[in-house]
Amino acid sequence: MVDEALKADLQKRGIFVASFEDLYNWGRKSSLWPLQFGLACCAIEMIATAAARFDLARFGAEVFRPSPRQADLMIIAGTVTKKMAPLVVRLYNQMPEPKYVIAMGACAISGGPFKEGYNVLKGIDRYIPVDVAIPGCPPRPEALLEGLVKLQEKIQAQRLFGPNRARHTDTCEAGDYPVPTYGAHDLEPPLNPQVFQPAPARKDLE
């Protein structure tokens, strides 16, 4: 590792020193390609973020891809219904590694205002891992930008080697998650225990 003071000193003279890891991560984080995939109200704010005033292109993430095979970021913008959930998981499975998920809005995080609904999934984190959650109903475009920057920070900090390395560098770990099926009353299974453990039930309600 290069000494930080020396690094800064060299930088002033126009010489940039970086580890391969930093360079690699810098490249990845600066050109995230989101999946062009909107579910509900938040999708309109996502379009607004990409459009004239907020201009997502400033953060290198304006290339919305219509195919999951070409995308590395899934912005779950809106309510995930139980009818939609298997399709979301399938799209996630089709994305190549490394892949990231932003849960945008209260609905995608927990069901939000529609939590009482019989057809509403209470958070997409029941089936797939979520990297960044952006609260709001819907989150303002600024909040989506903030979430994107947080994701970029997370990518920058990922290690490629060693014990805590990122998931996609480990070939042993599967990037696939089981797709739930439609049941007679609910989705089967109602959650994926690999990624989601329900909190213990409230004692005072028992």
Partner: peptide, 14 residues
Amino acid sequence: FGYLHRNHEKIAEG
């Protein structure tokens, strides 16, 4: 249809 069926009517009735 139904991929965004968020049960507005049921929720409002409750």
